[in-house]
Structure formats: C-alpha cells, structure tokens
C-alpha cells in the first residue's frame, strides 16, 4: 500500500501497514483481556529533505507511530524501511548501527534532559556512545552543536534547570543533531512552549533542515504550525490515517469529514472571520482504541455517516489530485 511522494527526491522512509497493538492485562494471573490498537495499519513515505506533518488529537496514535518508526516501541506488524533497510525486523546490533541515522526530539524539554548531567555531557553522550570523537575533538563538536542551535557554547558546564523551556528544547535539538542524522522525528517539539518561543524553535528547525538536508516527521496537534512547517500532511484518527495530502491541498480543500471538522475547530485570530465562520461541532468523544467502531472508525461522530459506513471499512483511495483519503464519499 505504499505510494509515491510528490517530491522528486528519493524516498528515505517508507512505512507500510504499520500496526502497534498493546495488550491489556487484567485479573490475578494478568491474563490478556483485550488489545489497544494504538496504530492499526498506517502507511506513508517520507522523501529525503521533506517534512511530513502528522496531526491528530490526543490518543489517535500519532506519537506511537513516531516511536515505532524509530523502533522505540516494537511494531506488531508492518514494514519500516529506512533508506531501503527494513528496521522493523532488524536484530539489536544491526539496529544499534542504524540509530545514528535516525533521531528524535521529544515533547517535554523538562523531562527529556537528565537533570544531573551538564548540558555538555548531554550533548556529548551520543558522541561517546556511537561516535569516534574523543577528548578535545569531542569537546569542539559539542561547542559546534550548541552554537548551531543558538546557545552560547560557554554554557556547556551548566545544568538543564538553569535554562528556560525554549533553551532546553534547543539542547534537545543539539543532542538529536550530534550524530549527523538523516531523519528526525519531532514529537510535539513546541507543545510545551509559549507562543513567542514556539516561533523561535520552529525557525531553528527549518534553518537546520535547509543547512543539513534533514528529513522530518513533524508530529503535532497544532494545525496552524503544521501548515507552516510541513510539505505534506497526514491526518490520523483512532490509529489510522484518514487523509494524506500536499499542504496546500489539505488546508485549502480538506476532503475527509474528520479533516474538515478538525480544521474548522481551530480558532482563527480574527474576530471578523470568527463571527461569520461556520464551525463543524463534532458530537461526543473519540471512541476507545481498545474497542474501535466497525467499518469506518470516524462514523460515530461523522456528520455524513450512513449505514454503509458501519458495514464497510472505507478503502485508502488515491483521488485525482494525488491525495489519499479513506472515506466512501470523498471525491
């Protein structure tokens, strides 16, 4: 179920029918009583140098997808190709050799940095673990990295608590860059930051991408920011991608009813626009991924659902304009 990326560049990451299921254990002997289908058949490609945005609400499986793509959680089924190598089935030593090429920037800059390590040793850790640099050469590389993310290299001996949220996120970015990766999963990198600081971090990510030719999977629930940073956008709902399209096509004319509702729910900072805008208000909450609805998973909240939606799961179709969508009625 793979499909071509619109960018001419080679495909760096190819994910095919990825599933991540978590068992639910209960009772005295911890018998398995169910399965949370966190990610349930997700396919996408990321071209080299591209940013693929992955959006969705909490619990839709976007972070689990990001973690599975880097094998931070094991996939239950499916293929994850990184530059042609299927890492989903790779042994631990071979996987370890792949690690430098794929890195992650975490959401919470307060929790993802060890408070007992200096900033210098945090950024140097991947270098001593995987790299060949030692002594003053490593020191120089750390200074170079801190400088690249806009931190004063003389701060290397300070501890994370001495930095603000935005600065801590820069430290996390420096650590992710240490081994010259090709591919970085950014898991909600700006969600914990204030508005005026978010723009600084996003601009840094874009500058680094241009300078170093990085490829991003940018996971976020902030649809405005994803429109800014991503080339293509995938929208997830309850473990599945419901729509995947070029940025302009997705934001200009969303085809899946969930994408339409999601975009219409984002408040626009303009009172004139807000006064006349029609919001699609979805009923109810997202169902549990342990017991997803039959057929189309969105049908319980969908404003245009019919009997067919409960009986038949919509196919992942390519429309004329090149986008993919999983809805019976999208044209």
């Amino acid at each position: 179920m793979a499909f071509d990326s619109p960018k001419a560049g080679e495909t760096l990451v190819r994910v095919a029918d990825l599933k991540v299921h978590f068992p639910i254990h209960a009772g005295l002997i911890r018998r398995q009583v169910g399965t949370v289908r966190a990610v349930d058949g997700v396919s996408f490609d990321v071209a080299r140098g591209e940013t693929l945005g992955l959006v969705g609400e909490s619990g839709c499986g976007k972070s689990t997808t990001g973690r599975a793509v880097l094998r931070l959680v094991d996939a239950t089924a499916g293929r994850i190709e990184m530059a042609g190598t299927d890492i989903a089935s790779l042994g631990s030593e071979a996987l370890r050799r792949m690690r430098p090429r794929m890195q992650m920037i975490f959401q919470d800059p307060h929790a993802s940095l060890n408070p007992r390590m200096t900033v210098g040793s945090i950024v140097a850790e991947p270098l001593s673990e995987h790299g060949t640099l030692r002594g003053s050469a490593r020191q120089r590389r750390v200074e170079e990295l801190l400088d690249a993310v806009g931190l004063n290299p003389s701060f290397a001996n300070r501890y994370p608590h001495e930095f603000s949220g935005g600065q801590r996120q820069r430290i996390g970015i420096a650590r992710a860059l240490a081994l010259d990766p090709d591919f970085i999963v950014c898991d909600e990198p700006i969600a914990a930051l204030d508005v005026s600081i978010q723009a600084q971090v996003v601009n840094l990510l874009e500058e680094l991408q241009e300078r170093l030719g990085l490829t991003y999977l940018f996971i976020s629930h902030d649809l405005s920011m994803v429109r800014h940073i991503a080339d293509r956008v995938a929208v997830m709902y309850l473990g599945k991608i419901v729509e995947l399209a070029d940025r302009e096509a997705l934001y200009g004319a969303p085809k899946h009813p969930y994408t339409q509702a999601l975009l219409s729910a984002v408040p626009i900072p303009n009172p004139k626009v807000e006064a006349t805008r029609r919001h699609i208000i979805l009923k109810g909450d997202v169902p549990s991924p342990a017991n997803p609805p039959s057929g189309c998973r969105f049908r319980t909240r969908c404003p245009i659902a019919e009997a067919r939606c409960a009986a038949e799961e919509p196919a992942w179709r390519k429309l004329d304009d090149g986008r993919h969508v999983a809805c019976h009625f999208a044209t």
Partner: peptide, 9 residues
C-alpha cells in the same frame, strides 16, 4: 504576538 502566529487560512 500576532505576527508570530502561523496562520491557518
């Protein structure tokens, strides 16, 4: 603050 916001439309 208004200028830093990316826009949806």
């Amino acid at each position: 603050l208004m200028a830093t916001l990316p826009s949806l439309d």
